[in-house]
Design a protein around this nucleic acid. Sequence first.
DNA 1: CCAGAGTCTTGACGAGTGTCAAGACTCTGG
DNA 2: CCAGAGTCTTGACACTCGTCAAGACTCTGG
Lengths: 210, 210
Amino acid sequence: MTPTRQDAPPRAARDERTREARRDALAESALTTLGELGYARTSLREIAANSEFSHGVVHYYFRDKTELITYCVRYYKARCVHRYDGVVAESRTAPELLIAFSDKLVETIVDEAPMHRLWYDLRTTSMFEEALRPDVVAIDASLQDMVWRVVSRYAELAGRPLVVTPGVAYAMLDGVFERCLLRHLAGERDALDELRAAVRGALPLLLRAD
Amino acid sequence: MTPTRQDAPPRAARDERTREARRDALAESALTTLGELGYARTSLREIAANSEFSHGVVHYYFRDKTELITYCVRYYKARCVHRYDGVVAESRTAPELLIAFSDKLVETIVDEAPMHRLWYDLRTTSMFEEALRPDVVAIDASLQDMVWRVVSRYAELAGRPLVVTPGVAYAMLDGVFERCLLRHLAGERDALDELRAAVRGALPLLLRAD
DNA sequence: CCAGAGTCTTGACGAGTGTCAAGACTCTGG
DNA sequence: CCAGAGTCTTGACACTCGTCAAGACTCTGG
């Protein structure tokens, strides 16, 4: 066998890597577009216009629109489900974690509002389109775990047990977050402060009364 | 002046009433269609197909699609915001109200699932389309009031004050409800029982510890 | 340098959309 | 019974969409 140079891998392998890079680039452009327009109004031409390619190239890297969207959804998930792990790891007391977590929520609702509304859009759309449901359910479960890591660590630091299930804890916090996102997008000034206050007030309620 | 017969009002008045009846009939058909397909995939032809009229008639009674949708949204609101008033009026103790309210939530999530997912669809869509936002915000406020009537009456019967604002109480319950709706639509059997249990477990948390 | 595989652009297609105009139908006042 | 206002249907329009085929461009192995 002819030995291959290590810094020049065989053709197929290199192609596979650039191919993956192209798919990721298209996914980035797609996510930008989806965050601006929403699922229903996002067209392949608009996605391509937000990329460096023309509209036909999408079908060169993805079988159809559904495959692109699915790829985007998974791409998105991989990027966001560990958003609060730092908060969990670095907080030393329960009040400290409460403050860091609520601040982080406010930060992300400001910095990543389009991605958040896209997620709610996809989740709602999955109530009508079964094709989206498996991926949405998987992400929802990941988000529930993410919240549970925060909440259970909070309880641990507080030295008091939780009185809610992971599902209910996630649903409650998510409800608060979604409502504040809507109000923030509607331009309500105090939405952010209320989110912070709401979370700081709500988390202690999930602990057994001492 | 020639007196008009009381059981035969002038032409214009009668026309106005039948015109209103037509608009309501179209709104009913539109809501059915919207609940089945969602906001984005509902077309005027599909709405007309679910009515006794042809597709052109929509523009005879509504200026454009937006006016029809707006009319539908308000029509929907008027029908649903007093859903739990009976529960509030008839319950005599806090535990009784808790049971009646949670049962009613389960009942409506089963019987009116399409309308509920439509509401979430509209609310999410309003994050992208400003035209929908005023009506959505108004309905959201009505729903918050609706929940607050339940929750505050519950606190009153329990003889303990609430420790959350109306907005947070609504957001938390709505989050639990939305999550269970999604799971119910996904065919998860225990979604309904979990909704019931979640609400019965959650409402007491909103009262000051005794 | 050149053939050929790989990559990307362009333009077309059929289906579906909101909108509207022209005309057919219906009902009623005189 | 008839004219005309009111109501509804039909068919067309301009447009956008996902998809795909034909060809142009790019890059590289030999």
